[in-house]
Design a binder for these strands. Structure first.
Length: 400
DNA sequence: AGGTATTCACATGAAACTATTCTCTGAGTTAGG
DNA sequence: TAACTCAGAGAATAGTTTCATGTGAATACCTGT
């Protein structure tokens, strides 16, 4: 008890590096967005007609993760709605991230979410979908207004449930008397629109804007600005920011990653009692960010997924690559031990495909000629994470 | 030797099924007038 | 008679299973030289 008390005492006395850590979290919207002036201007041009109550063109935004799409849209929505409310213009910005599970990842839930935006509750299940649509229409058309609907990670949505909703949404306008709705699609899949229904495609991508990745120098600038707000002066060793941005630039210029990295490095430094954030903290942060990502995705998977993953980890040290069938055999034995019911190979195949998508494994479909066709699978997780991951999975699956 | 046909071991797709959660509806029940 | 209870019908959704079809190239099997 005394020790813990002492710890808190010391903790208080110790000075923090941070002035305002929230600046380094990914949901922070800075009041100035650098290196995106062109795109911002373009978006502004396209959306400006809303202020005159004219319906603007639908807009589509492409760009990889961490290239500032989300932040830019949020920024623009904020400033339009500010001006709109100053001038009493009936304008309603809605931002929805379609990837959020249980929130907006199905047709029903997306519409339900929209209805919520208009201040009405909808049961999470039980109602027929067209009923929900009707409520939405009525709500939307009750008064004259322009709705700007930004759908982030829209590719996730269509991947899961097809493009019917988008078709419905683009068509809504012709059925509304008072309101107009304008869609802004945000996707980090550059070829997303290719496999959309042509009708949807043409009406959704009336305007397209591409967000290119940042280069190392730009990330450096962004980091410096954020760091200035987040950290106290002279708490970061020279070179740390440079290295941090180099890390991130290496992976297609993901600014979000760089910012995350910097924050974690700061946290590590603080905890270790150092008076400055130095390179070693950064290195450690990189490891931690990586392993946290892997472990938290693993932990959040259902039991069956965990079993399959564990089976993979079991084989991995023995061979550099292995096939679906081998994993299935191991998995079947594992299920016997854990008393889980055994899923069909068909299902395992899908699970493996998902792991591949998540980047946990690397799988290529190969043909072994006379000996069939299968996935050639190799683990793409760092070795020292594997050990930790294995422990975590054993605990979760109640293995001894 | 060169060409063709087979064949393996899965991949991939579509549809149907199961279980769970939740609403809505209408029949039956109850308490008070 | 109004309010309440409760079972059953319908929906949405996630996670599977079942059935059906596809597939790339190493081998087996010919064929003609």
């Amino acid at each position: 008890m005394v020790k813990i008390g002492q710890f808190f005492e010391n903790y208080l006395k110790k000075e923090s590096f941070f002035i305002d850590k929230s600046v380094l979290f990914s949901n922070y919207v800075p009041d100035e967005i650098i290196f995106r002036e062109e795109q911002l201007q373009e978006i502004a041009n396209i959306l400006a007609p809303t202020l005159r109550l004219e319906n603007p063109s639908n807009l589509f935004i492409y760009g990889k993760t961490g290239t500032g799409k989300t932040i830019s849209i949020k920024h623009i929505l904020n400033s339009i709605s500010e001006i709109a409310s100053n001038n009493k213009i009936p304008f309603k910005p809605i931002y929805i991230n379609c990837k959020l599970k249980k929130v907006a990842d199905t047709e029903y839930r997306l519409i339900a979410r929209l209805i919520e935006e208009f201040g009405q509750e909808i049961p999470s299940t039980g109602l027929p979908t067209d009923e929900v649509y009707n409520i939405f229409y009525k709500l939307l058309d009750k008064e004259k207004q322009i709705v700007l609907l930004a759908l982030d990670e829209i590719d996730q949505l269509t991947k899961k449930i097809g493009d019917e909703i988008l078709y419905n949404l683009t068509r809504i306008n012709s059925e509304l008397k008072n309101s107009q709705i304008c869609l802004i699609g945000i996707s980090n899949n550059l070829v997303f629109a290719e496999n959309l229904d042509p009708r949807v495609k043409s009406s959704l991508s009336e305007e397209e804007i591409i967000f290119p990745p940042y280069n190392a120098l730009q990330i450096q600038d962004i980091l410096k600005r954020r760091a200035k707000k987040a950290f106290k002066e002279d708490t970061i060793q020279i070179g740390v920011i440079e290295k941090c941005s180099a890390y991130a630039a290496r992976e297609h210029g993901d600014a979000r990653r760089a910012i995350d990295l910097l924050r974690v490095a700061g946290e590590i430094a603080e905890r270790s009692g150092s008076h400055i954030v130095d390179m070693s903290h950064l290195d450690e942060a990189e490891k931690k960010v990586e392993s946290d990502k892997v472990i938290s995705t693993a932990i959040n998977q259902p039991k069956q997924f965990q079993s399959v993953l564990y089976s993979i980890l079991f084989i991995a040290p023995q061979k550099k690559s292995f096939f679906t069938g081998e994993i299935y055999e191991v998995y079947k034995n594992l299920c016997k031990q854990t008393r889980l019911n055994v899923l069909t190979q068909r299902r395992i195949s899908d699970i493996l495909a998902e792991f591949d998508m998540q980047g946990i494994i690397h799988a290529t479909i190969i043909s072994k000629g006379r000996y069939g066709r299968t996935r050639d699978i190799s683990l793409s997780i760092d070795e020292n994470i594997v050990i930790k991951l294995k422990e975590v999975l054993e605990k979760s699956l109640n293995l001894t």
